[in-house]
Every structure is written in C-alpha cells, then in structure tokens.
Design a protein around this nucleic acid. Structure first.
Lengths: 333, 333
DNA sequence: GTTTTTATTGTAAACGTTTACTATAATATT
DNA sequence: AATATTATAGTAAACGTTTACAATAAAAAC
C-alpha cells in the first residue's frame, strides 16, 4: 500500500501536520525533527500525492495544450517551446489534438477544466473563434497561440500574419512574377483572412489586379496543395507563382507542379509559410515566411504563467505580435 | 465561486450523495429526482471536479507519455496514435520531453507518479535502460514503446530492429554495394545494438568483412550524419553505401555527400530507418525501413489500457514485435 | 392487515493533503 | 522570579467527491 504522510507520522511519532511542514520546508519545525521526518520519508519511499494536494491548494501545476495536430511539423516546435518553459517552472502539460474538429476541441477544453488545470494554451482550430471564446470556462487563464481573435479577453502570441502575407507576395512581385495565386486553408480561419489580406495589399501596392480564380481554399494538408495546383494547371489557366498559406501546402504545390513537368521556380515559383525544419533542406529549399515557433511556445507559456500566478493582481492581458521573416530559398528564384 | 455537488444538493433539497448518484447515472435514484438534479447541474454550469474524484477513486484517467523529443519527426506520429486511442478511452495524456537527458527522464517519471497517472508510456532515452527499470515505481502500469529491455517486466511494442538492420543492409548488398558503413546513435542504446546486429548479420551472410572504421556513432540529429560523412570523406576512406540508424541521420549523410560533390546514390547510397513522412517526398526519396508509427502508438496505449483495467487479474505482460518493412526509393538505386 | 421485499434517500466516513488555530515548552526580558 | 516572547508541535477542519451502511417509504406477498 502507498505510503502517506500518516505512515511517516506514525513511525516518527509526530503529528502529520508536522510531517507536512517538514516535507515542505516550512519554517517552525526543529531541524532535528525535520531530518527525522525526511529520513523516514526516504526510507518509506514516500511520494507526495499531488492529487490530494491539488484538492486543498486548488492548483494542480498542470496546464493544457490544445492544438490541431501534433503531426503537422509546425506544432512540435511550438509544443517543445511550451514544454521546455513549463518544465522549468514545474508544470506538466496535457497534450490534446483536436484533429481540426470543433467537437474535439470543445471536448478537450471540457476535460481539461474538469481536471482543474491551472491554465490552457490553445492553438485554435480555424473556424468559429468567437464561439470558442464563449465555450471557454471563465476564471481559468487562457493563452492563444498562433491565431487569436483580436478582441479576445485573453493573452495571445501571434505572428503578424498580414505582414507575412505581404512579405511573401511582395517578394514574388519583386522577383518579377505577375500572376500570383494564393492557396490557403479553410474559410473562417483568422490566419487565412490576415495572410490573404497581406497578399492583396502587396498586389494593390504594385497595381496588380486580384484574380479570384487564383485564390483557392482547402485545408492545411500537403495533398491539398498538390491537388489544387494540378487542377488549376489541368484547367489551363494557372498562376506563375503561388503563395501558399503554409509550408505543407507549398510542398504539395511543388510536387504537383513538378509531376506535370513544370519547373520550380522557372515555370511556377512557390512561397510557403512557417519555415518548418524541412523547408531548409538542400533538396527542398523552400522560400517561406519564418515563424519563430520555439519562441512562440516559450512566450505563450510565459504569458500563461503570468496570468496563473498573478491571478488577482490586475495583470492586463497582453497580445504579443511577433515579426515574420522572409527566408528566400530556391523555390522562388 | 465554483459550483459543487453541495450547491446542487442545496437547491434541489436532496442529500449530496443522491446528487452524486444522479450525476453518475447510478441505479437507485428516482427518475424524477435525477432530472431535477441534472437540470440544476446544467443551470449552475456544474463541472465535476476530477481531482476530488481522483482522490477517492484512486484513478485519474491521465497517463504519462515520456519521449526524447517531440521535435524528432518519428515521435509526433507515435504520440498521435497514442492520443487518438487514449482519447477514445477517455484518458488524457501528459507529454514529457526528456531531451535525451537521463536526469530529465527520471524527473518526468517522478512528477508523473506524484500526479498519480494511471499509467506511463515510455520511449526510453537510449542509455541505461536497466537503470530505468529500477527507477520505475512499482505498481504503476508501464509500457515501453520503440525500445525496451528484453527481460523487462513491462509490456512493450517494438519493431524487429535486428530484422530492420538486416533488411536495410541486405538491400544495399544486393544492389551491388560492398563497402557499407553504419552510422548510428549513442552507445548503450538498445536499438543501436540490434540494428547494428542486423547490419553485421547481413554482411556475414554475404561473406563481407566488417570494417570497424565504417561504423560511426554519434546521436540522432541530422547534423551528426552530415558531419560524420564529411569527416569520413575528408579522411579519404569512406563507404560506398551507408545504413543510417534513423532518417534524420540519413538525410544528413545525403546532404553532406552532395556538398562534397558526390552523387547519391551513384557515389554513395543511403538507407535510413523510420520512414518519417518527409522520406517519401519526391525531392527526398529516401530508401528506409518503415516503422508503423501510428499503429505503434495505438498498440502501446492498448497494452497500457489492458494493464490499467485488469490490474488484479493476472494479465501477462506482452511484448509486441512489429514487422519492419523495406521501402526502396531513389537514395539507394 | 401484517410481513417481506424493493426502491429510494440520507448519514457519515474516507481519500491524502494543507493550514488556521491552539497548546505547550523553551528562551528571553525585566 | 515572574512575565513576555518565541519556537515547536498538535488538533481539527477543509478541499469535493464516492460509497458502505443505515433508514425510510413504497410496493408486493401472504
């Protein structure tokens, strides 16, 4: 049977209040008895019960991380940043994949609150951000990462998606391309809106027309980029350059184009978004907009920690907007 | 303030035992009062406190997942398999990265047991597997994934690493290569031993000598493969084909070789291990040994669940050994 | 119309901690 | 030497559930 504080009290012949104090290095316990208790604890291989402690202290030192899909190479980097920082501060993280499903996102959040996590970090599934805000239990600290409603009452770390979209598109234009397509993920996505906005800004700045036929939406998977470019080329009219909303899509576009005998970047140039590790590979060399993923994770946890520890004192919510960075590689010049 | 079972009892004027029974759909509560309780619960937006429940029921419906690094593309797939299955069974998972550090591995395990997880899945940091067995708290179900001591008292899902090593090497030999190198990760790693064993088996089978200079160890990072091949080539004598212990290393080897002006596979052929998603990319086309990563995760959780639910009944530990599969792509022919 | 059975509810203890409060012993102050 | 102060230890309540057991009410059996 599991050894508890009471067992220690029994064999050391002190009250279990004293045992608790000794184990937690509280003041007001004689050095002598403390060592007595400590050695008994070690002998009995005592492991404090965090559940019991959590019940009385009302804090669990656990936080939830809700992301669409850890299999998408953007997220492991962010998750790692979060976990590293959490680990340092003594927190554990619950990982929840939503698989881009609203229902699973909602369920994850419910489970996390039932488990009384001290806070939640969410990389929201694209759609229904407003709805998400509604479902979120009040009182528990929440931080959004990667995408967040502007008017949210919660802290967030995001990248300047408009600027990112602009940088990508502007780069293509300055490299001499005129017919530039946009391939992105589902409607109602906030990042979509913003990156698309940046794309349009760049076109407008250079007095290029916006061709809606060249704006194609789907999801974030590589296959989707692959299918879309193939369809466009098949239909005869296709853009000479593509800005894809993430690197996976971009890689799909490249693959599709190549299979059709098109050269990248000569026949069609491609720019992605995220700068996942593989984008830098010599065989890939994808031009892309870099997001500081690990930092994003770190910052997200720091914001959460701020909220968690200073719950009462009126720490204002913060919105950290990170700078995107254009990384030019071979897929665009 | 948080609504509890007592508040519901108060406004419905039944005892809180009855409330508990009603909420948990236990038999022996009148339909009438049940709906009364349920509607009160909804009105008060009641969320059961899993911590309190965990304390009395002695189960938390949480499990720990301890892996070296979620950033290594092998692990997200496994993690996803685990989480999908866990999710289905109503469990949440704590994600712990050890960063290949023993100390962090040990700490993770301690924290998890303090949090009274119902079970732990470990993809062990390479070294000191025996030591790990020792540190593991007795009584709590554990499952090893991807690598496990043969004589472990715990269940495990692994791949037949010897066979994998054999398949890879044998393939290179049959493709006509004779000087075949092995690049692997740290000593004391069980997977290393086994894959190396398979490599040697294949060489012996074809009466090729084993050249210890062509067996180089480091870690699992791409840079390492890159550096090792560069050093070998720089020193003049290098293998015409390389079996790398994982895909990341293999990709590093390819990159290093190419930078030195060598053609892959003409001048040096490369085979990896894992079949991470990017290995299949048209630009990469890495020949490799495929591990069924998602399935591995699923099975790992199933084994754990078996252990967790049938704790008393003498469910024997199981060792599931999955079949590796050679996937031939362009890096080797 | 009793007695037996069954359905429903309530009481209280338990899970393993922390902590406010009280009690005692030891030491310092005068 | 009496009093005030401080250091140390103990008692008991609390955290929010579940559940064994007891109690009551209703229904069934006779």
């Amino acid at each position: 049977m599991e050894t508890t504080i009471k067992h220690i009290a029994q064999i050391t012949k002190v009250s279990y209040a004293t045992v608790s104090r000794a184990l937690n290095n509280k003041k007001g316990v004689k050095a002598e008895t403390r060592t007595l208790v400590l050695s008994a604890a070690k002998k009995l291989n005592y492991q404090p019960n965090a559940i019991a402690r959590g019940l009385v202290k009302k804090e669990t030192y656990s936080v939830g991380l809700v992301i669409p899909d850890i299999t998408n190479p953007f997220f492991p980097e962010v998750a790692r940043g979060i976990e590293d920082q959490a680990n340092e501060a003594g927190y554990s993280i619950f990982l929840c994949n939503t698989n881009w499903e609203d229902s699973r996102e909602i369920r994850s959040i419910r489970v996390l609150t039932e488990k009384r996590v001290d806070g939640i970090i969410i990389a929201p599934t694209a759609s229904r951000l407003d709805f998400l805000e509604e479902i979120l239990p009040r009182g528990i600290p929440v931080v959004f990462v990667s995408s967040a409603a502007k008017n949210s009452e919660h802290s967030s770390v995001v990248i300047d998606n408009i600027l990112g979209g602009f940088l990508a598109t502007n780069h293509l234009i300055e490299a001499g391309y005129r017919d530039i397509g946009f391939i992105g993920a589902p409607k109602d996505s906030l990042t979509l809106d913003e990156r698309l906005e940046g794309y349009k800004m760049a076109l407008r700045k250079h007095n290029l027309i916006i061709n809606d036929d060249f704006i194609q939406l789907g999801d974030f998977r590589r296959e989707t980029g692959y299918n879309i470019i193939k369809r466009m080329v098949g239909e005869g009219e296709y853009p000479r350059a593509v800005f894809a909303e993430n690197d996976l899509l971009a890689l799909g576009v490249i693959q599709g184009a190549r299979e059709l005998g098109l050269l990248v970047p000569e026949d069609v140039a491609v720019v992605g978004f995220d700068d996942i590790p593989f984008a830098a590979f010599p065989e890939i060399q994808l031009t892309t907009i870099c997001q500081p993923k690990h930092d994003m994770g770190k910052i997200a946890f720091d914001l959460l920690l701020e909220r968690m520890t200073d719950k009462e004192s009126g720490i204002r919510k913060k919105r950290i907007i990170l700078e995107p960075e254009l990384v030019v590689r071979r897929s665009s010049c």
